[in-house]
Structure formats: C-alpha cells, structure tokens
Lab assay of single mutants.
Amino acid sequence: PEEVRRLVEELYRKGVSPEQVKKILKKQGIDEREIEKVLRRIG
C-alpha cells in the first residue's frame, strides 16, 4: 500500500538500515511482507 511505501522511503532516506526499517514498522503492526516488497523495489 501507498502508506507503507511512504513510511519505508522516509526511514530509508534518513539512513535507517533495511533491518531497522523492518523492525520499526513491524512494531507499528505493518505486515513484514509488505515492508520487504517495498525495500526490494527501493534497494
């Protein structure tokens, strides 16, 4: 979803590592598979 992409990109631009991005967003209840999809697209 758009909102997940925005959150991931925001953290990524701040220099947060992909592993940390995953941890942070998982705590917020976001599906890990969604996060990984976005990270793959960015990375």
Rank of each mutant, 00 (worst) to 15 (best):
P1D: 13
R5P: 04
I30V: 09
R6S: 07
K23M: 12
V8F: 02
E9Y: 14
G29R: 02
V21A: 04
K27V: 07
Q20E: 08
I35V: 09
Q20A: 12
E34Y: 05
Y12P: 00
E36S: 04
K27L: 11
V38H: 08
V21T: 08
E2L: 07
K14A: 12
Q28Y: 07
V16I: 11
V21R: 00
R13K: 09
K14M: 10
L39M: 05
G29W: 02
E2W: 09
G43T: 13
E32Q: 06
K37I: 12
I42R: 01
P1Q: 11
R6C: 04
R13E: 06
R40V: 15
V8K: 00
Q28S: 10
G15L: 04
G43K: 13
K23G: 08
R41E: 15
V8R: 00
L39N: 01
K14I: 10
E3M: 09
E34N: 03
Q28F: 09
Q20N: 11
R5M: 13
V38Y: 05
D31M: 05
K27N: 12
Q28E: 08
L11P: 00
L7P: 00
K22T: 10
K26T: 13
V21Y: 01
E9M: 14
I42F: 14
V38N: 04
G43I: 15
E34P: 00
E19N: 13
E2F: 08
E32I: 06
V8N: 00
K23W: 10
E9D: 05
G29Q: 04
V16Q: 07
R6I: 11
E9R: 13
R33G: 11
R5I: 13
E19F: 12
V8Q: 00
S17M: 07
V8P: 00
K27P: 05
E19T: 14
E34W: 04
Q20M: 13
E19C: 06
E3R: 06
L25D: 00
P1A: 10
R33A: 13
G15V: 02
K37C: 11
I30S: 01
E34T: 13
K23N: 10
G29F: 04
E32C: 06
E10L: 07
E19R: 14
G29I: 01
E2M: 08
Q20T: 11
E2V: 09
V8E: 00
V4I: 13
E10S: 09
G15A: 03
I35K: 00
P1L: 10
R5Y: 15
K26Q: 09
G29E: 03
K23Y: 11
L7E: 03
L11E: 01
E3D: 10
R6V: 12
R41M: 15
L11K: 01
E10N: 07
I42S: 03
E2I: 09
V21W: 03
Q28L: 12
V16Y: 09
E10W: 07
K23F: 10
L25P: 00
I24A: 06
K27W: 06
K22A: 07
Y12Q: 04
I30R: 02
L7Q: 11
I42W: 12
V8T: 03
V38S: 02
R41I: 15
E19Y: 14
Y12F: 12
Q20R: 10
E9H: 11
Q28K: 09
L11W: 05
L11I: 03
P1S: 14
P18D: 09
D31L: 05
K22S: 05
V38T: 04
E36C: 09
E19W: 14
I24V: 10
G29H: 04
I24W: 04
L25H: 00
Y12L: 15
R41Q: 15
K14L: 10
R33D: 14
V21Q: 01
R13W: 14
P1W: 13
I30A: 03
I30N: 01
K37A: 14
K26H: 05
V16M: 10
E10I: 08
L25T: 01
G29L: 03
E19Q: 13
L11R: 00
L39C: 03
R41W: 15
K37N: 11
R6F: 08
G43N: 14
R6N: 06
V16H: 09
L25V: 02
E34H: 04
V21S: 02
L39S: 01
V4P: 02
K14R: 11
G29T: 01
E36W: 03
R33S: 11
R41K: 15
I24T: 09
Y12G: 03
D31K: 06
E34F: 05
V4H: 02
R40L: 15
L7F: 06
E10A: 11
K14Y: 07
R41N: 15
R33F: 06
L25Q: 00
Y12K: 06
V38G: 01
P18K: 14
E34L: 14
R40C: 01
V8D: 00
I24F: 05
Q28H: 07
K27R: 11
Q20P: 00
R33E: 14
K23E: 10
R13T: 07
V8G: 01
K37Y: 08
P18E: 13
R6T: 08
S17V: 09
E3K: 09
G43Y: 15
L11H: 15
E9L: 14
I35R: 00
G15W: 03
V4Y: 04
K23P: 03
G43S: 13
R41V: 15
R5N: 14
L39T: 02
S17W: 08
R5W: 14
I42T: 04
R6H: 07
I30Q: 03
G15E: 03
K26S: 12
R5F: 15
E19D: 12
G15I: 02
K14F: 07
R13V: 08
E2Y: 07
E19S: 13
L39V: 03
V38K: 01
V38E: 15
Y12D: 03
V4C: 05
P18W: 04
K37P: 02
E3S: 09
I24Q: 08
Y12T: 07
I42L: 15
D31P: 13
I35C: 02
E36V: 05
K37S: 09
P18S: 12
G29M: 03
V8L: 02
L39R: 00
E34V: 13
E9A: 06
V4D: 01
E36G: 02
Q20D: 11
I30P: 00
I42V: 11
E34K: 03
I24Y: 06
R5L: 13
K22H: 06
L7K: 11
S17Y: 06
E3P: 07
I35Q: 00
L7W: 06
R40N: 15
E10F: 11
R40W: 12
K26C: 04
K37F: 05
I24L: 09
I42N: 03
I35L: 03
L7S: 03
Q20S: 09
R5A: 14
R5D: 14
E10Q: 11
L7I: 06
E9Q: 10
Y12N: 03
P18T: 12
R6K: 12
K27F: 07
L25Y: 00
L7H: 05
K22E: 04
G43D: 15
V21L: 13
V38Q: 11
E19G: 13
I35W: 01
V8H: 01
K14D: 07
E34Q: 06
V38W: 14
K14Q: 10
V4S: 02
L11Q: 02
V4W: 11
K26G: 13
I35H: 00
V38L: 05
E2C: 02
K37Q: 12
G43W: 13
Q20W: 13
V8M: 02
Q28W: 07
V21P: 00
K14S: 12
V4A: 03
G29A: 03
K37V: 07
E9C: 11
K27D: 10
R33Y: 07
K23V: 11
R41L: 15
R13L: 08
D31I: 04
K22V: 12
E36Q: 04
I30W: 14
E10H: 10
R40T: 14
V4T: 07
V38F: 04
L7A: 09
G43V: 15
P1M: 12
V16W: 12
E2S: 11
K37E: 15
E36R: 04
E10Y: 07
I30Y: 14
E2T: 10
D31Y: 02
K27I: 07
E9F: 11
K14H: 08
E32K: 05
K23R: 12
E32Y: 03
E32T: 05
V21I: 15
G43A: 15
I35Y: 02
E2G: 11
V38I: 11
K14V: 08
L7T: 05
P18M: 07
Q20H: 09
V4M: 09
K27G: 10
R6W: 08
E9K: 12
R6L: 11
G15T: 02
V16D: 04
R33P: 04
L39A: 01
Y12E: 03
Y12S: 05
L39P: 00
L25A: 03
P1R: 10
G15N: 05
R40G: 13
Y12R: 13
Q28A: 10
L25G: 02
V21K: 00
V4L: 14
L7V: 06
E10D: 11
R6M: 09
V21C: 06
V16A: 09
G29V: 01
